[in-house]
Design a binder for these strands. Structure first.
Ligand SMILES: [Mn+2]
Ligand SMILES: [Mn+2]
Ligand SMILES: [Zn+2]
Ligand SMILES: [Zn+2]
Lengths: 146, 146
DNA sequence: TAGATTTTGCAACTATGTTGCCTTTTCATA
DNA sequence: TATGAAAAGGCAACATAGTTGCAAAATCTA
């Protein structure tokens, strides 16, 4: 990556943090960096491995929690019970997420993708049930693995 | 519950286990009992609490795992990352689950329901992605909580 | 009912997540 | 650009969740 591109990335990261009223700290920059240079989602473990040498485990937990609260990342529920995190689009912010896309988990490479263009379907529920939020996770084989 | 009804229940449990080629043991009977007398799903913690005085934690883990493998129960992924388990319909069996219904988690009472009559929708995926399994979890307010 | 097979309990261990407290860093303002 | 309040990080200790190997106990087959 060119010096210019690196600079741009750092600027982008700082402004993203400031926009969310977060102070710009080294661990936040590092973890946000991980998300920005990544296509798919990251599991907590991934992040800890990639950022963990430099930061305490507790800091990673707290940083992710803060990012979720501020609408910077969102969680993706999976069948194997390992939370994954992915960047939100710009519409999400403090306290309110507006992610209505579905998620795809590849059974081969185990990568998790936000399919931003596939919106969650309307589900017709039995009388009495009132939907607030719909979560769809599709498991299958991804583009790269066929 | 009448003596007759209790007897019926025990018979039902034993034959369910035998049908899955499982030996009839006390812990399996107890845990299966919990599912049969229950409407919604059970979290691992629930089960451990209700059966745990009598059985070791490890036994609960192993029993649930066996039940999932044999198609007696299925897992339900949730946003808070606590696996829940619910009874399968009869079509599920050794190694192959055929649950195509959606799940509902109540944000008030935290109960989880299998909505057996609501089938998972067909999701149109971007070119290249191949779906094998679709998981839908709706969060909202349940029948009893409104 | 005996013996092979399966399941269980126990102990020890790893992984995951949380909390309190003190130190360090950040940021606003002087 | 120096200063101090406020926020964030690191550390230690703890709590909970899940796994493994092995010997004892229960189940099933014949
Ligand atoms: Mn997403
Ligand atoms: Mn179900
Ligand atoms: Zn893949
Ligand atoms: Zn409810």
């Amino acid at each position: 990556m060119s010096k210019q591109a690196t600079q741009d990335m750092e600027t982008r990261i700082a402004s993203l943090l400031k926009r969310s009223d977060l102070s710009v700290t080294e661990s936040r920059r590092k973890i946000l960096h991980l998300f920005l240079e990544q296509t798919g989602a990251l599991a907590h473990g991934d992040i800890e491995r990639k950022a963990g040498e430099k930061f305490d485990r507790v800091t990673v937990y707290r940083t992710l929690q803060t990012f979720v609260e501020k609408g910077i990342i969102h969680t993706i529920p999976t069948a194997d019970n390992s939370i994954r995190y992915a960047l939100c689009k710009d519409e999400c912010s403090g306290g309110h997420h507006h992610d209505h896309h579905i998620h795809f988990v590849c059974s081969q490479c185990d990568n998790t993708y936000c399919l931003d263009d596939v919106v969650t379907p309307d589900i017709k529920l039995p009388k009495g049930y009132q939907a607030e939020h719909v979560e769809v996770v599709v498991e299958g084989v991804c583009k790269n693995c066929r």
